[in-house]
Write a protein that binds this DNA or RNA. Structure first.
Lengths: 228, 228
DNA sequence: AGGGCTTCGTGCAGAATTTCACAAAGTTAA
DNA sequence: TTAACTTTGTGAAATTCTGCACGAAGCCCT
């Protein structure tokens, strides 16, 4: 059988493409027309060879001796990441974070309009958050189908997060952005990205402590040194 | 020279330890006393061998044939991650997100109290956000020294984020949690964790599109199949 | 036209990470 | 005590990711 399936981009490269895109959008806004892998590498804080390899997964869109064209590359990255269309988002959990996401207008212009928000609390159902009315979570399937939702954001309490995930998957969603500090049990056919500030802070804590210990042991060493 | 320096834990393992810790805290709350690497692996959604190897970086704290003790492991992970003490956080940027972080009480109990918030907008300086008064960013150095701040969270606009980072580093901060969608230019001695929902959504978008294309090509194949 | 210069694309080696597989070490039960 | 069973800890293989190094290809200047 002929290799019809799409060229697969390594996960690590996929995670960097949005960062490149962000930088290229900035370059474009400042009227930069062309860039070299060296320049993008410096801006992205990575190795130039890595930039070239990452971009080469999209195809050979550079010109040797010249570099890459900003607008053309933006187009290619957007195509590859699936950003030529909009992906509708539904928020599950109308708490502080959920409502903030629903009101925040920053995602629609970037291609991810929040088109619905649901909750299971009768007191919240029917209330307005920005332009959206909170729906009953039991209507999730219908809402997903009617509004062609493809991404679900879980902003419930930790205890409700797993059933929120179950409901989303039941409704046909295969992409989940999870804000609850819990590892969701989901089939491998579903993608999840976790956003957990506690985890991020704890990772920082580890390296911070590491630095402190190194400094301490150096000082220790110095004060132990026998003066000649 | 004797190997005084701390056993170094691989970055990938460091990033998983907070997740294990979260799960173990839950187990502890439900009165679970012991667990096996298989059980934790299932809960964390990873391979059991990986769990054992990750935990082995802390030392040999399991018992063969039995498993690990929840409370003891919690203690060891906390020690290793540097969670035996508090790490004070300062928020730079008193916008929606910055104020939300300052008001949100969820970090203090987990060892990361937000002890200050600064901005450069005279209209915001002096205002109250929760229990904190917004300080002038020019007082950052003093604030960091007086309140023993070790972590800075950047919640400014994108355009102000780099100077916020510069100010934090100038003030002696070496751990930054960055919410602005920009790659910060910082010396290698400083740790940064980026939290960018746009990036997360775009990664989801890639895999979502991938799935759709695969389904499409399968349907294509089926309809092309010659019936016998 | 041709030499010099720049920058891409990529093979390859090395590093990091993941996974397998199994001996070691413990428990349980008769 | 011994045999059967469980589960850890860890070498080693497999996989993924990174970074170097260099040929290929284009531009510019004379």
């Amino acid at each position: 059988m002929t290799q019809l399936q799409r060229r697969r981009i390594p996960d690590a490269a996929v995670a960097r493409l949005p960062v490149y895109l962000q930088i290229l959008n900035n370059l474009h806004a400042t009227n930069v027309v062309r860039f070299s892998s060296d320049e993008l590498a410096a801006l992205a804080g990575v190795n130039a060879a890595k930039v070239r390899k990452d971009l080469s997964y999209l195809g050979s869109y550079g010109t040797r001796g010249v570099g890459y064209e900003v607008t053309y590359l933006i187009h290619q990255i957007r195509r590859e990441l699936g950003l030529m269309r909009e992906w509708n988002v539904v928020v599950v959990g109308a708490g502080n974070l959920g409502c903030a996401l629903a009101k925040f207008g920053g995602f629609a212009p970037r291609g991810f309009p929040v088109v619905g928000i649901v909750d299971n609390d009768p007191k919240k159902i029917g209330q307005l958050t920005g332009a959206l009315k909170v729906s009953d979570v039991r209507n999730l399937q219908k809402l997903v189908r009617d509004l062609e939702v493809t991404i679900g954001a879980i902003t419930t309490s930790t205890s409700a997060a797993q059933s929120a995930a179950d409901a989303l998957i039941e409704a046909g969603i295969a992409s989940i952005l999870n804000f609850a500090p819990i590892v969701l049990a989901i089939p491998s056919s579903v993608s999840v990205r976790n956003v957990d500030l506690g985890v991020e802070l704890q990772i920082l804590s580890y390296y911070e402590q590491m630095r402190i210990e190194q400094t301490d042991s150096k000082n220790q060493q110095e004060s132990n040194a026998v003066p000649v």
